[in-house]
């Protein structure tokens, strides 16, 4: 039963991911990515981790994808334009990094197949329990947790700074009728 569920969900996730890439319409792409996120959430549920399931739905499906859709709709940028890449080394670098990621994933799955415990395995036992997961995050893994928080804060500050600079450089328009 579990195996069957896993294969169905994994297939849905893969189909969603591939369809996201080949779809010509940005909104359709966003929806396929949403399907992929949903399938991932179900995979977390199959791994007995309802906490990650809800977080996946809230953060990725509920917040990030909504923002994507919002921006796509606001800009009216549904149709993909075939423009050449502006940065010449972008594509080779992307391929290189993709191969690297594939290598890491393969190493991880080989490691798992060899029966070695996963790094950070102490969290695996408490995945089902949000209280224990929280305790681990705020004691043992406090430093990585804080660093992640700081990185996100830097991103937020960066967005504000970039936005402000863009405004100052823009020619002084008369204030829109208010």
């Amino acid at each position: 039963m579990d195996v069957l569920l896993f294969f169905v969900t994994a297939a849905v996730a893969l189909v969603g991911a591939i369809a996201m890439l080949v779809s010509r319409n940005a909104v359709h792409s966003a929806l396929f990515l949403l399907l992929n996120f949903g399938a991932m959430a179900v995979l977390y549920l199959l791994l007995q981790s309802p906490f990650l399931f809800t977080i996946q739905l809230t953060v990725y499906a509920g917040a990030i994808m909504v923002l994507f859709l919002f921006v796509v709709m606001l800009l009216g940028a549904e149709q993909v334009e075939d423009t050449p890449d502006r940065i010449a080394w972008q594509r080779p670098l992307g391929i290189l990094l993709g191969v690297g990621l594939l290598g890491v994933a393969a190493a991880a799955s080989l490691r798992g197949a060899a029966g070695q415990p996963a790094p950070g395995g102490e969290a695996a036992a408490s995945f089902g329990n949000p209280a224990e997961l929280g305790a681990l995050l705020f004691t043992r893994y406090l430093l990585p947790f804080e660093i992640t928080g700081v990185i996100l804060l830097v991103a937020v500050v960066g967005v504000v700074v970039l936005n402000q600079r863009g405004r100052q450089q823009a020619p002084a328009k008369p204030p829109a009728g208010d």
């Binding site: 929806l31 949403l34 309802p50 906490f51 809800t54 499906a61 909504v66 919002f70 949000p130």
Partner: peptide, 25 residues
Amino acid sequence: DINVGVLYILAVTSIGVYGITLAGW
């Protein structure tokens, strides 16, 4: 009765926006 019931509520309300947004688009 799941141990993340409140988070489940938040997760489901957060995906509730899609219906309206997509209908509009």
